[in-house]
Amino acid sequence: MKLQKIRDYADRPGGFGIIVGIAMFAFIALAGIIYPLFGPYKSDAFVGDSFGKPSLTHPFGLDQLGRDVLARTLTAVPSDLGVAFLGVTIPLAIGTILGILLAFVKNRAFVSIVSSLIDGINAFPLLIIAVAMLTVLGPGLVNVVIILTFMNWARYARIARTRAIVVMQQNYIEAARLQGYSKKKIIFRHITPNVSSESLAYALSDFILVIIVVSGLSFLGLAARPPAAEWGAMIADGRTYIGDAWWLTIYPGLALCWSAISLSLIVEGLSRRDRGNS
């Protein structure tokens, strides 16, 4: 019965991609939660020869200090996907609320100042700003989340504002107003749910970008730093030894691709569903 439901879902346009994407994402997320709890090796334990080749006991091989690469790759899941998740959801919430509130502001001058501020923030490549802000904040994953919040709210605010202006002209908002609902109730019960679908869709594709930015910053040694287990940091670490031990670089990179591809399958499936059959 349940299986039939899934099968029906997969038959709708884009459904197959969405299901595969969710399964891939769930797989790596679960592996990242379960392995650190029950896995045979700890991420920072020295369990064998340095540069041990991939084998049955250590399927991803061992790194320069004899640590298990599989253990490190999976232990990195919470710090990579977790940080990226926070780096998407916090600005999503803040930006959406600010954008909706901005749609209510009638003062022309104020709106034009704030929207040009938003454009100004969006003008900088995210990675550049992040690198520059880390000068003063200092490296660290928490600071990366702060920076992502600081930078990315602007995009969500713009999406939410544009959408809120459209939604506010709909008849059901007029109806709610005529029924004498308070402004607060209209904003949170009627406008926000109708605005957020577009923001959520953007957030999902932003998730991919943020995963790449977080691991990119770690690669530069500005977010998570070795010996912390984090994909970008592991790739940077393995870079020195790439001639002798490709597995130090390739496996964390594949984990990174795996997560990003799973999300992009979901994004593409959803957009395909939007467009209908094509």
Partner: peptide, 18 residues
């Protein structure tokens, strides 16, 4: 193209170097 877009550039670069 989805795979290329979802892959971080530094990983593509590392594979390229390899």
């Amino acid at each position: 193209t989805s795979v290329i877009i979802a892959t971080p550039n530094f990983f593509i670069a590392m594979v390229g170097i390899l």
